[in-house]
Amino acid sequence: MVPRIAFTPGEPAGIGPELAIKIASSDRPATAARAQIIAIADPDLLQQEAARQGKPLQLIPFDSNREAEPTPPGSLHIVPATLAESALPGQLNPANGAYVLETLHIAAEGCMQRTFDALVTGPVHKGVINEAGVSFSGHTEYFAEKAGVEKVVMMLAADDLRVALATTHLPLKDVSAAVTGQSLQQVLTILHRSLRDQFRIEQPRIGVCGLNPHAGEGGHLGREEIDVIEPALNTLRSLGINLIGPLPADTLFTPPQLARCDAVLAMYHDQGLPVLKFKGFGRAINITLGLPFIRTSVDHGTALNIAGQGIADTGSLIAALNQAIELAQLRQAF
């Protein structure tokens, strides 16, 4: 079966519309030829961007009642949403904050109703949405709330390296208090289940970083490993989950140790993500685990400074599309 992949370009003044046109163009990557790509966006915005790039664009109305077929070169299937005001590259406009949320709403509803097989999201600008008078902390939290899910996990991937986060966007001073036995068990259970059920890894092996340098060095550099992390891991091991660690991050992120792992759990944002981005800069993607649907995303921002110049790199979007298609096909197969 041909998977239906919804794509939200995100902030209309950013590089998302440019990426959409590059994916649609006749010289598009082979990725898009394997799926039906459905843009949820303002049709006029996409046509204006296509004209700016000098590329013809055919927008095909999406019909969920028709059998999915690969989207032809030079085209996109479209579910329309309407901008409040015309978007200018690089110039944020709070009037269009509601438009961005409308595209996310359509995408989430379509995924939960299984109209779409997966969702790929382009970059949004949280600040301008909040300036529009709408409380918005990010894609991940928005989709979790829409799906009625209490806990989701952020995992980033680049090539064969997968790094999930025990905590996400917290000041470093707050990380220790946020790493609790309960939260670790929740995160690791979701990570294990997703690797098994979504990625079809029969017996996932998860490497777990310690919080402190040298993983606490027997309590001399901190007791979080002894008091919190190790008891949580032992509880999960008793349930059959294969966990390696806690190990010092500078030990776990070495080739011999990574070869033993299908994924790594980092305790905080900048413990794991610099390694991943160094390994796969321009190809890294974000995958939300724990949702009732597949969601991948680019791992970069709106890049307002280069919007409209035709120089945006599609590497992360191509990787996100590839991963979404692969996961959708695995779900169909099993």
Results as ranks from 00 to 15, higher is better:
Ala6Pro: 01
Pro9Trp: 01
Gly10Pro: 07
Pro12Lys: 04
Pro17Phe: 05
Pro17Val: 06
Ala20Gly: 11
Pro29Gly: 13
Ala33Phe: 03
Ala35Asn: 06
Ala35Glu: 05
Ala39Leu: 12
Ala41Ser: 15
Glu49Leu: 03
Ala50Cys: 08
Ala51Pro: 03
Gln53Glu: 12
Gln53Arg: 14
Asp63Ile: 10
Pro70Thr: 05
Pro72Cys: 10
Leu76Pro: 01
Ile78Arg: 02
Glu85Asp: 00
Ser86Cys: 01
Ala87Phe: 01
Gly90Gln: 09
Gln91His: 05
Ala95Phe: 03
Asn96Ile: 06
Tyr99Arg: 05
Leu101Cys: 03
Met112Ile: 11
Met112Lys: 14
Gln113Cys: 11
Thr121Gln: 13
Ile129Val: 15
Ile129Glu: 13
Tyr142Thr: 07
Val153Trp: 03
Leu161Pro: 02
Leu161Ile: 10
Ala164His: 08
His169Ser: 07
Leu170Asn: 07
Pro171Arg: 04
Leu172Val: 10
Val175Phe: 13
Ser176Leu: 06
Ser176Asp: 05
Thr180Pro: 04
Val187Phe: 08
Thr189Phe: 13
Leu195Trp: 11
Ile201Pro: 14
Gln203Met: 09
Arg205Asn: 10
Ile206Thr: 04
Val208Arg: 03
Asn212Asp: 07
His214Cys: 07
Glu217Arg: 10
His220Tyr: 11
Glu225Ile: 09
Glu225Thr: 07
Asp227His: 09
Pro231Val: 03
Ala232Ser: 07
Arg237Val: 05
Asn242Gln: 14
Pro246Ser: 08
Leu247Val: 00
Ala249Met: 02
Thr251Gln: 02
Phe253Gly: 03
Pro255Cys: 02
Pro255Ile: 05
Ala259Ile: 01
Cys261Pro: 06
Ala266His: 02
Asp270Ala: 11
Gly280Trp: 12
Phe281Pro: 00
Gly282Ile: 10
Thr296Gly: 12
Asp299Glu: 08
His300Ser: 06
Ala303Thr: 10
Ala307Arg: 00
Gln309Val: 02
Gln309Gly: 04
Gly315Arg: 08
Ser316Cys: 14
Ala319Gly: 08
Leu327Met: 15
Gln329Gly: 04
Gln329Lys: 15
Leu330Phe: 15
Gln332Asp: 02
Ala333Tyr: 04
Phe334Ser: 13
